[in-house]
């Protein structure tokens, strides 16, 4: 909460270095557990004031990545550097006291609110934990002013989460995330559970508070239209690996990785004429199981440009002249046209 004066817009706030995380699943007395590689060798950085979108399909590890950054899940390899400090090495009180700086907004707004607490208690909870210097009256005052900023009426303070609609519940979740004055917020599918009209309200609210408070956002979603709408840069994950990382417009206008392109063209466009003209770069098959991943490039089983070496050598994440990162052997040869 101490607003370190040194941080300027554009400074590196968070750096993820070679992060890997696997889960052991199954396994019993006589069965060996199998290893699910959720994230492998993830490196990227987030600059102050930007919004980084993380997209991918189910099982790509995007939610795990968000939780690893927040240290809700501990990664076994790699580092998460917050202003140069390795969060993975912090434990107990040291980590707890930093939590005011890194906050989170979850997908299911109702599931993320404790059903036995009133709205006021829920929003005040981080203050109770991290600002012992505030008394109850000061907390209440801050909660009320935060509620009004989120479009929640003050009379709602004594009500319980189940009395709210999804959109209102998400406003409560956002208020709770903002109450400690964080620098970075991880938004994990914040609008996926909401109706279209409410989704737009929440997206606008997020953009507005980001601009007003100079927040940095990590915006995780499976919905590429939504990600494009809010993000400055976008990171595309496939089976736990980065396949492409680029500026938002560049990514949408000229995707370099065949998967990015397929993903972009698959998004249904709410425009009948365009929908009819579009040629979808149809991917065959489905995402392989993260337990038995293909050798070499993990995308090769669905890639129509795959050749021999794709099965043998895993493509490294290369830096292109325009600064974007791509993990594909053939990006130079492939002329991938823009999104729609």
């Amino acid at each position: 909460m101490s607003n370190e004066p040194g941080i300027q817009r554009g400074d590196e706030l968070l750096r993820v270095e070679k992060l890997s995380k696997s889960f052991m699943i199954g396994g019993g007395l006589f069965r060996k557990p199998v290893e699910l590689k959720a994230l492998q060798d993830i490196s990227f950085s987030v600059r102050a004031g930007e919004t980084l979108g993380i997209v991918g399909e189910s099982g790509c590890g995007k939610s795990t990545l968000g939780r690893c950054i927040l240290q809700l899940i501990r990664a076994e390899e790699g580092q998460v550097l917050w202003l140069g400090r390795d969060l993975g090495k912090l434990a107990g009180e040291d980590l707890r006291l930093l939590r005011g700086d890194l906050q989170v907004i979850f997908q299911d707004p109702l599931a993320s609110l404790n059903p036995r607490m009133t709205v006021g208690e829920i929003i005040a909870e981080p203050l109770r934990a991290l600002r012992p210097d505030l008394d109850a009256a000061e907390r209440r005052e801050r909660v009320l002013s935060m509620m009004s900023g989120m479009g929640l009426r003050p009379e709602m303070i004594n009500r319980y989460p189940h009395e709210f609609s999804g959109g209102q519940a998400q406003r409560i979740g956002i208020a709770r995330a903002l109450i400690t004055g964080p620098k970075l917020i991880v938004c994990d599918e914040p609008v996926s559970a909401l109706d279209v009209s409410i989704q737009a309200q929440i997206l606008n609210l997020l953009s507005e508070i980001r601009d007003r408070m100079g927040l940095t956002l990590i915006f995780i979603s499976h919905n590429l239209s939504v990600v494009r709408h809010v993000s400055d840069r976008i990171l595309v994950l496939y089976l736990g690996r980065i396949v492409e990382l680029a500026d938002s417009d560049a990514l949408y206008d000229s995707p370099q990785h065949p998967y990015t392109r397929a993903l972009l063209t698959a998004v249904p466009v709410p425009d009948p004429k365009k929908a009819r003209q579009r040629n979808i770069d149809g991917l065959t098959g489905e995402i392989p199981s993260p337990i038995n991943q293909p050798s070499g490039c993990t995308f090769r089983t669905r890639c129509r440009f795959a050749e021999d070496r794709c099965g043998k050598v895993r493509p490294a994440l290369e830096t292109l002249p325009d600064g974007r990162l791509v993990a594909c052997h053939r990006w130079r040869e492939l002329e991938l046209a823009g999104g729609a």
Binding site: V196, R228, V269, G339
Partner: peptide
């Protein structure tokens, strides 16, 4: 209310 993937809108 629906964001389009092929347009960049500042506000919905």
């Amino acid at each position: 209310s629906t964001p389009h993937i092929d347009k960049r809108q500042s506000r919905l």
